[in-house]
Each structure stands twice: as structure tokens, then as C-alpha cells.
């Protein structure tokens, strides 16, 4: 427990470091944020599909709202620790970071958080354009659901971050895990609600997919911030999020510790 107290004490400074880092790479960060535009493309195709009538309960406004929400959630629950670890472990630059009293994962988490304001900045013009395009879009978050939305975003980010740590820790064994991670990422785009609302999938597939961790990262926060789910209805999907956050955190912790021990055994 001692490390967590230390982490809590150090976190404000870590956040400041992370913020400075993000400020110095602001242009690159904005460009990175702009590359996450896949939901925009999907919005156009689903808009055409719904032009002749609603599809599975979604009309054009519902789709516009859903994908605007997806863009927002994607920017806020994203993480890139797997790429940091791939780079640091392969080049050995992780060694000095490991000597510090707090592990490098804390700084990665702080950087993710520090990037949020910049990522929001990218969102503003895009979301404004979508709102001008479909003024009636379904994007209505009630004040009462704001805490739930914030918690869902935080849980979604945790699931994504810890899964990435697991893949990153794989590098301790294989030296490169970017390729395997991209396989996971492909499944993520299909089964998280990133490219289409999951309820549009055939029921048989959906009944399997809803048990997987993917929807915790995108679909659950999206359905809350668009007002699709509210009140007590948010509890079940959030319990799913919480369960996966705990599982992934435990898995990340275990693989990280094992990996570190192995890394030391290299003597690198």
C-alpha cells in the first residue's frame, strides 16, 4: 500500500511533468488526435443507410449523436502506453525509469490525463460541424447523469490502459509486441462500438460480444453521454466495466511484475 500513498503524493508533480511534455509536443499531439477519425467515416455511411428510414431504432439524428459521442469517448479513454513500453523495453531506456521510486506506468497515466485538454481542443471544431450538419442530433446528457458519465469514462480508460500494459509487458519476453497488439486493436474496433453501435450486430454474435471487455471502452460511456442510457439503466453496463477494470488491473499487475523480474535477469 505504501507505493500507492507515494504515488498519490507524487501525482501532482507527475501531472505537471506530463503537461509540460504535452505542451512541447502539442502540434504532434493534435495531429495524433486528428488521426482517430474512423467514427466520422462510419457516421457518413450509416447516415446514408438511415436516409431511407431508421435502422434498428437509429435514425440519422441518432447516428450523428452516437458517432459524435464515439469521437469524444475515443479521445478521452485513449492510451498509448503499449507503444511507450515497446520503445522503452527494446531500447533499454526503461532501465533508468525503473530505478526511480515510482514505476514508469504512473508517468504514462499522468501523460494520458495531461493530454485531455489538448484532445478536447481538437474535438470542439469537429463536434461543432456535426452539430451544424444535423442540428437535431441525439446528444443529450442530463445533469443527473454527469457523475455516471465521468465514472464510465474513467473506468473505460482504466480497462484500455491496463490491457495495453499487459501487451506492453509482453515485450519483456518477446521484445516486440506491437504486432500482436494491433490484432487486439482490430478486434477492439469491431466489438467496442467504435465503428457501429453494437446493438446493430446479429443477436447471436452480440450475446457473446457483450461479455468481452471491448464495449466497456467505447459503447458504455457513449451510451451514457448521449443520454441513450440514464438513471438506473447505467448500473448493469457499469458493473461490467468495473469487473473488467479489476480483472485487467490484476492481470496488468501480475504480468508487469513477472516481466520486470525477467528483465532484471537479462542484466540489461
Amino acid at each position: 500500500m505504501n507505493t500507492y500513498a507515494a504515488a498519490a503524493r507524487a501525482f501532482p508533480s507527475l501531472l505537471k511533468t506530463g503537461l509540460a511534455e504535452m505542451v512541447s509536443y502539442r502540434v504532434e499531439l493534435v495531429i495524433w488526435a486528428l488521426t482517430a477519425t474512423m467514427p466520422l467515416l462510419m457516421m457518413f455511411i450509416w447516415d446514408r443507410v438511415a436516409a431511407t428510414g431508421p435502422v434498428g431504432g437509429y435514425d440519422q439524428n441518432a447516428f450523428a449523436g452516437y458517432f459524435a459521442g464515439t469521437l469524444i469517448v475515443r479521445q478521452l479513454t485513449t492510451a498509448w502506453v503499449v507503444w511507450d513500453l515497446n520503445e522503452q523495453i527494446r531500447t533499454g531506456s526503461i532501465s533508468p525509469a525503473l530505478l526511480k521510486p515510482l514505476g514508469p506506468l504512473w508517468l504514462s497515466a499522468a501523460e494520458n490525463l495531461a493530454a485531455v485538454p489538448f484532445r478536447m481542443l481538437v474535438l470542439v471544431p469537429i463536434i461543432t460541424c456535426i452539430c451544424l450538419w444535423r442540428p437535431e442530433l441525439a446528444l443529450g446528457l442530463a445533469w443527473a447523469d454527469v457523475p455516471a458519465a465521468a465514472a464510465a469514462l474513467a473506468l473505460g480508460w482504466m480497462v484500455y490502459f491496463f490491457i495495453q500494459v499487459c501487451f506492453g509487458a509482453l515485450c519483456f519476453y518477446t521484445e516486440q509486441s506491437g504486432g500482436i497488439y494491433m490484432g487486439f486493436y482490430g478486434l477492439f474496433t469491431l466489438f467496442s462500438g467504435y465503428l457501429f453501435p453494437l446493438d446493430l450486430m446479429p443477436a447471436g454474435i452480440l450475446s457473446v460480444v457483450q461479455w468481452l471487455p471491448f464495449r466497456a471502452i467505447i459503447q458504455t460511456p457513449v451510451s451514457i453521454i448521449t443520454g441513450q442510457l440514464h438513471g438506473a439503466a447505467v448500473l448493469a453496463p457499469m458493473a461490467h466495466q468495473l469487473a473488467w477494470a479489476v480483472i485487467c488491473a490484476a492481470l496488468a499487475r501480475w504480468s508487469w511484475r513477472h516481466g520486470i523480474r525477467r528483465y532484471e535477469a537479462y542484466g540489461a
Binding site: M42, I45, W46, R48, V49, T52, V55, G56, G183, G186, T189, L190, L195, F196, L200, M201, P202
Partner: peptide
């Protein structure tokens, strides 16, 4: 694999319409 990932969203969309 990636071709599959590209095609699946289209399969879902064309499940609802004959032509777009």
C-alpha cells in the same frame, strides 16, 4: 485479417439495406 476488419462494418450495414 485487416481486410476482414475493413469488410465487417460493411457486412453489418448491408445487412439492413440491399444497396447504399
Amino acid at each position: 485479417l485487416w481486410t476482414g476488419f475493413t469488410v465487417v462494418p460493411l457486412i453489418v450495414a448491408y445487412d439492413y439495406r440491399e444497396g447504399i
